[in-house]
Design a protein around this nucleic acid. Structure first.
Length: 318
RNA sequence: CCCGCCUUAGCUCAAUUUGGCAGAGCAUCGGACUGUAGAUCCGAGGGUUGCUGGUUCAAGUCCGGCAGGCGGGACCA
């Protein structure tokens, strides 16, 4: 696989790469490190899976993968006691492997290094040059509480930046909600003696209720190990206005979880509504957009395929 | 450390004045309507009234203590 080929694969399905040139340089390096961090909390859902799939692409392109199980970050974000969070970390680790990351993947528990003296001193150093406003702004889409803001909230992004120093990352991946923290990292890592990492952002999946972001704190997600019955129920109940593509979670699931590995989607449909059809992604958008494909038929097809696609994941996690 | 205000359903808040069956909106769930969901109608569930002690026939309501939140004051040699 040549470099341009790798870049095409890495680029597909992402919202932005900062920057392409730097990515190219990293790909010429000997086993560059790609990192992503997750707060172990709640269920592992399709929103998480989008980023994991991209990490798999990076792994195939020759990156060494480091997954940060950010237990202290989850703690700082009020997700529970350290014990509870540690328990979920174990479950999460299995989820990554179930989704297809190889066992060469390196899992790092945040608390295993985030209390080291050198780490702490770096956090203080960065704290000194980061304004409160900026730290808080970077957390706008991440923080759990919208009021009664705690100091923890501004320690969080600073630690995340220093994580990248200690994990020696060449590339950081995240959903679009991570953008402001990543920019903070790009700007500040050089000041603490580490080159700015390449940043890749993946899109956020809308919640099944149509809200901005799929999230385990609201019941608007499909977990990667949901039973077929749950998947049916959740997709059936999903927000899915006829003719509307933008922000339609069912279309998004088709796009990111079916069309990424299939050229076409086979849609079973009663004869009186036009009979079965098979559509590629462009045709699907066309047919759905002009009302020729009914939401229920779309839902049924997506449900059937998603159940099949997640079957090995369910089996692995059993 | 001191003073004041606040804490009631998952959320936002009524009910405190004058002690007398703890309510509404939103959210959730169910039904109707659409060949999906949503919207809209109709209906249902939902409570240790922050915790604790007391007064009273009776306390969300009055009194004491504690915890948490908000605001102010004081301290700053």
């Amino acid at each position: 696989m040549d470099i341009d080929n790798k870049i095409d694969i890495i680029k597909s399905g992402t919202l932005e790469i900062i920057s392409h040139d730097e990515l190219k340089e990293k790909l010429q390096k000997d086993s560059p490190v790609a990192y992503i961090g997750y707060e172990p909390s709640g269920k592992f859902h399709l929103g998480h899976a989008i980023t994991v799939k991209k990490m798999i692409d990076l792994q195939k392109a020759g990156f060494r993968i480091k997954i940060l199980l950010a237990d202290l970050h989850a703690y700082l974000n009020g997700k529970g006691t350290l014990e509870e969070i540690k328990e979920i970390s174990e479950y999460m680790k299995k989820c990554f492997l179930a989704l297809g990351l190889t066992d060469e993947t390196e899992f790092v528990l945040g608390s295993s290094f985030q209390t080291d003296e050198n780490y702490t001193l770096k956090v203080y150093e960065l704290a000194l040059s980061t304004t409160l406003t900026r730290a808080r702004r970077s957390m706008a889409q991440i923080t759990r509480s919208k009021k009664d803001h705690k100091v923890a909230e501004v320690i969080y992004p600073i630690m995340q930046v220093i994580d990248m120093l200690f994990l020696d990352v060449d590339l950081a991946l995240g959903g679009m909600e991570q953008r402001k923290i990543h920019m903070l990292a790009r700007e500040n890592l050089p000041k603490v003696g580490h080159p700015a990492p390449v940043i890749i952002h993946t899109p956020l999946l809308h919640g099944t209720d149509g809200s901005e972001k799929m999230s385990s704190s609201i019941e608007n997600f499909i977990a990667i190990d949901d039973s077929p019955e749950d998947i049916k129920k959740k997709i059936k109940n999903s927000y899915c206005p006829a003719g509307e593509i933008e922000g339609n979670p069912v279309i998004e699931i088709a796009k990111y979880f079916i069309y990424d590995t299939h050229d076409t989607l086979f849609i079973e449909r009663p004869l009186k509504f036009g009979g079965n059809i098979e559509l590629n992604y462009d045709e699907l958008l066309e047919a759905y957009g002009n009302g020729k494909l009914h939401p229920l038929d779309l839902k049924n097809a997506v449900t059937a395929h998603l159940i099949k696609i997640l079957e090995p994941v369910r089996e692995y996690l059993k």
